[in-house]
Amino acid sequence: MKNFLKYREIWLLAGIVVLIGLISTRFPGFADPANLRQVFNDTSILMILALGQMVVILTRSIDLSMASNLCFTGMVVAMLNAAHPAIPIPALIVIALLVGLVLGAINGFLVWRLNIPSIVVTLGTLTIYRGATFVVSGGAWVNADQMSPDFINFQRAALLGLPVLSWIAIIVIALFFLVMTRTQIGRSIYAIGVNPTASVYAGIDVGRTKFIVFCISGMIGGLAGYLWISRYVIASVEVANGYELNIIAACVIGGISIAGGIGSVGGAVLGALFLGIISNALPVINISPFWQMAISGSAIILAVVLNARGERRQGRIILRKAEAA
């Protein structure tokens, strides 16, 4: 399985390299390290969000409310910053994480304790959280001139040649990698995704684990809320409207199975990068944004087809072994 996942990720990586190559023929500067760093930075928020979504999808659930959570939390920190510019940025980030955690915990609680399917719960909270943004802001925007310079510049500061935003993404990727491969909760997430019944027998609390993954995706949504608002320097009810679909698309392109249990941190990151490259490159080589949507859509279907083929190949190995045995 491990080998196979690597195999799939290498395919995706190869696809990305080919994509960059193709774009370079039309726009020679695209493959410059400086530009690639820029693309990475531009995709950082999507990568972070895709990782949060990944842990949810791995447990056979889905979180449709991440973009609304991002919007709400972004509004809360923006208003806090506008009202109290003295609050230091790290404290605001902690607040963003906590607000996101609360929203995620609400999702998780409903899924765990009331046993409502996650797609229903988060379809509800998708609307509720965005509505709540309207309630706290009264429908008003928070504009760049209301935000403190620190609020805006924190993520742009260069550290060892990369902006802080990129470093945050790298840290989140590393943390997720460690959690998924080296901790009990990571192992439990995979196990309940692959075989929930066997996991119950093995003494894993499936409901609690799902609660935890929604808490994780909530915290990620909250973190992304601050990063998004300070990047695009405007907070409104419309922020990231519909973006939950991009997050899920990144996961699917990255080989995370909607049926749960299959997927990796590397896959989610590469899936997000793929979408990031498309959205960055196509405008500069004069392809209309509508083509951009068509290409992302095709990539999703292609990824699903390739993954399904991969599963079948795996099945044949079982048969061969069974026959040999």
Partner: peptide, 24 residues
């Protein structure tokens, strides 16, 4: 749990013992 390697299947109900404060 098909899809997980053999050793992870074996350790699944014993994870408390094979990990230290949640770290495998």
């Amino acid at each position: 749990v098909i899809g997980l390697p053999i050793f992870q299947n074996v350790s699944l109900p014993s994870l408390k013992r094979t990990s230290k404060s949640g770290v495998l």
